[in-house]
């Protein structure tokens, strides 16, 4: 800048000097485009050959993936979805014949149900006027709507079966014994929640099948001891069809619009959230209790240490 001002006094000469310098500058710029850009392009192509070195890549994946024991461990530990697992497990705990994989299959079915369920929610209105028509619409007009509904229905049935089989194998392997007593109890609650999820979903198509199944089911609530109007001591405690526990469940004295809405909210929001929380605790405790219980070395009756009383 200071130089510019000095030249400025000489008028014309200065202008020539400026022009020369601009020309030279532009020439340099052009030259740089000619030489630097191809070099950069070459460099870029080199980089593209190994995308794992790019900043975008390294910002997503926090470690390398060449096949070393360290990376195998990191692949599990540094992944939010996989860190449920330890890095290494007992060799024969992966044997299918021990766990039958039923807990994992139950969880996978829960994910499938969440996914298909959310898609169904886009088409379904929980009201007496719309519900049945929405299901018809899904069956006949929505692209893949029928497949969607079928998948949701059958995955729900499969999940009930898978939970039972899971509980069955946990029992048969004695996996509820110390220190897993608490997790067994979390499991029992998950079993109940699974059945309730299935049951609340049954009413939603608002057809005869669901209506009568839920009518039969909730009629039993009339007979709840103390809290139902037909149950033992219900009458004495002032229970009527309009204030007992069945009324609370259905939002009315008959299975109608309110029952449909309540069913819907329990089915799509209430129970899934509670079940998710219990599942998180369940998986956490599987880890904290020392992982899968076996296949453990067999123990002999002669080795049991009787606790002193």
């Amino acid at each position: 800048m200071a130089e510019d001002n000095k030249n400025g006094k000489n008028g014309n000469g200065a202008r020539v000097g400026l022009l020369e310098r601009v020309k030279a500058g532009v020439k340099e710029d052009v030259q740089s485009l000619k030489t630097d850009m191809p070099a950069k392009a070459k460099e870029q192509i080199e980089h593209l050959k190994d995308p794992t070195k790019t900043q975008v890549y390294t910002s997503i994946f926090r470690h390398k993936h060449d096949d070393t024991p360290r990376n195998r461990a990191l692949g599990v530990l540094s992944n939010v979805f996989l860190h449920l697992h330890p890095a290494k497990i007992n060799r024969d705990a992966v044997r299918y014949s021990y766990t039958w994989g039923m807990g994992g299959i139950t969880f996978y079915l829960f994910i499938v149900l969440t996914f298909t369920g959310v898609l169904l929610m886009f088409y379904y209105h929980p009201s007496k006027v719309q519900a049945f028509r929405d299901v018809l619409y899904l069956e006949h007009d929505v692209p893949f709507g029928k497949l969607l509904r079928n998948m949701h229905r059958w995955a729900a049935h499969l999940m009930v079966i898978a939970v039972w089989l899971h509980m069955f194998r946990v029992f048969l392997t004695g996996s509820y014994k110390k220190p897993r007593e608490f997790n067994w109890n979390v499991g029992v609650i998950l079993l109940v929640l699974t059945l309730l999820l299935s049951f609340t979903g049954y009413l939603l198509p608002d057809d005869q099948l669901g209506f009568w199944a839920v009518t039969v089911g909730t009629n039993m609530a009339r007979a709840t001891p103390l809290l139902g109007h037909e149950g033992p001591f219900g009458h004495q405690l002032g229970m009527t069809p309009y204030n007992d526990i069945r009324f609370g469940l259905l939002g009315g004295s008959i299975v109608d619009a309110n029952a449909l809405l309540r069913s819907y909210i329990w089915h799509c929001i209430g129970i899934p959230i509670v079940a998710s929380i219990f599942m998180i605790v369940h998986f956490w405790r599987v880890r904290k209790d020392g992982g899968i219980s076996g296949p453990a070395p067999v123990m002999l009756a002669s080795e049991v240490k009787e606790p002193k009383k």
């Binding site: 049945f132 299901v135 018809l136 069956e139 029928k146 509904r149 079928n150 949701h152 229905r153 059958w154 299935s198 049951f199 049954y202 198509p205 608002d206 057809d207 005869q208 099948l209 669901g210 209506f211 009568w212 199944a213 009518t215 039969v216 089911g217 008959i254 299975v255």
Partner: peptide, 20 residues
């Protein structure tokens, strides 16, 4: 296919009415 019966009708009892 998943079953879908007639629309629900409180005046028409299913027989047998079975729970899930």
């Amino acid at each position: 296919s998943a079953p879908l019966e007639e629309p629900s009708n409180p005046n028409l009892t299913m027989n047998p009415a079975k729970a899930p």
